[in-house]
Nucleic acid binder design. Structure first.
Lengths: 246, 246
DNA sequence: GATCTCATATCGTGATCAGTAGTAGATTTA
DNA sequence: TAAATCTACTACTGATCACGATATGAGATC
């Protein structure tokens, strides 16, 4: 059995450990990245064999990866047994984001209590890159740096359990998050990140927690306003296609 | 891909849905139950093929199940690629139980706010059965009813996300929990369950939360005292054997 | 023209097979 | 006698195969 490192925070650095399950690792990394980056859109049905063909391997490693992503609620199964990216209902979205506030608020607070100058510098740097990405309307880098900002903070909490659970949540709303950034009427900002940085600088862990929760709440509202306006589904369900579809 | 319902709370009722992945379901159910019920002890290495042979199937379905359990941190891989039940260090145990307090405390509080008479009756009944099991020193039923008590409460929170995350935590400390009950010097009580029931009756959600956290904390102390006394490992590591080992 | 039915293509599941790496035990040597 | 090395076994990984179920499309019928 190979390690199924939940490296949501990794932006593509799946280097190293190319010993045993390298095909498995490659497929998992590809799928994770695809989910976080919008290659797979909510509602899209994926075929085991086509995915395998597109990745140039046999269906076997793909089977295991998909199976795990289903178990992690990052994908769901259709009646026939194929998998598809879930379309999150507003209720489910609210539920997930409520738990996000709980977990990430706590992780941020813990991190603030253990904060080091290095952490503050790192986060400041990441946030600068994030702001540049926003200015350029570079969706992929927005997502990537935002993710990096949050998880760098959370990892400073030194609670592996907390971080892993948070990662599993991000995997669930990742595709929906991407879709929301496609809506031009909803400009994206990282305003609460400034609050977090300020709180860290002052050593005010409560402020860091509050800033984190506000950031999550803002994101949640953005996603809900989109989901709500279209009924229970998100738009663009049929817009993009998987690169190796048919 | 088949549903990998994280039914920790299920005590064996894997009936229904016998359509497609019935072998897979059976293996998953067996493994889950085995982890929760002490059939697999921390540190024990398990062979894919022997498990398959013991279950009377090919290694294929077992492979997927083990792969998922590794991904869920319920099992860990050895250098050779086999899987083994993790030996939780005191630090890891503390980490898990801290998150337990956070998640289960919140779930209990939410549940208390939505409490119905039916819930109170159900929990009272379950607790009665639990007390009987304790009186009889019936470890399996102790675990089973305790689990049922907690998850019945948490499910009343109506937060699916919260409940699923809690289940994933229980799966991690399940085997260690079982080992702790084998220590005769540590008698088990469900005293805090009374506090929870009292809080529910009064509609005092804060008391319910507090009782839940106390219950978790008590369990954590019991586990830690055992883990600590033996260094970083738990006793009984080689005591019990898997029924189909060799 | 719409709907129902049937045939075919496709998909997932589980079994088997070839390939490779790791481990343990035995043998040989210092 | 002890340590190092070599060999043989056993483990997982990934590919291919066979089977049963499903969905889709065309064709016939109402």
């Amino acid at each position: 059995m190979r390690i199924a490192k939940t490296e949501v925070a990794a932006n593509g650095n799946e280097e190293g450990k190319r010993q045993r399950g390298h095909i498995y690792e490659r497929v998992l990394s590809y799928m994770r990245r695809g989910l976080m980056v919008g290659a797979f859109v909510p509602g899209q049905v994926m075929s085991l064999r086509k995915l395998a063909a597109g990745l140039g391997t046999s269906p076997m490693p793909v089977r295991e990866v998909l199976s795990q992503l289903v178990a992690a609620n990052a994908l769901e199964e259709t009646k026939g047994g194929s998998v598809r990216v879930p379309r999150l209902s507003p209720e489910k979205l609210s539920d997930i984001f409520s738990v996000r506030e709980l977990l990430e608020g706590t992780a941020a607070e813990l991190a603030a209590k253990k904060a080091s100058p290095a952490l503050l510098n790192g986060l400041t740097s990441i946030n600068k890159q994030l702001l540049q990405a926003i200015a350029k309307r570079d969706i992929l880098n927005c997502l990537s740096f935002n993710q990096k900002f949050h998880f760098t903070l959370y990892q400073a909490s030194e609670s592996e359990t907390l971080t892993l659970l948070i990662e599993s949540l991000w995997l669930q709303f990742g595709p929906t998050m991407y879709m929301s950034l496609l809506i031009p009427s909803k400009p994206w900002s990282a305003s609460h990140h400034e609050d977090i940085l300020a709180g860290l600088k002052e050593g005010n862990s409560t402020a860091v927690k509050r800033g984190t929760i506000q950031d999550i709440r803002t994101t949640c509202r953005a996603l809900l306003s989109i989901a709500g306006s279209q009924g229970t589904e998100l738009p663009f369900a049929q817009g993009m296609e998987l690169q190796f579809e048919d």
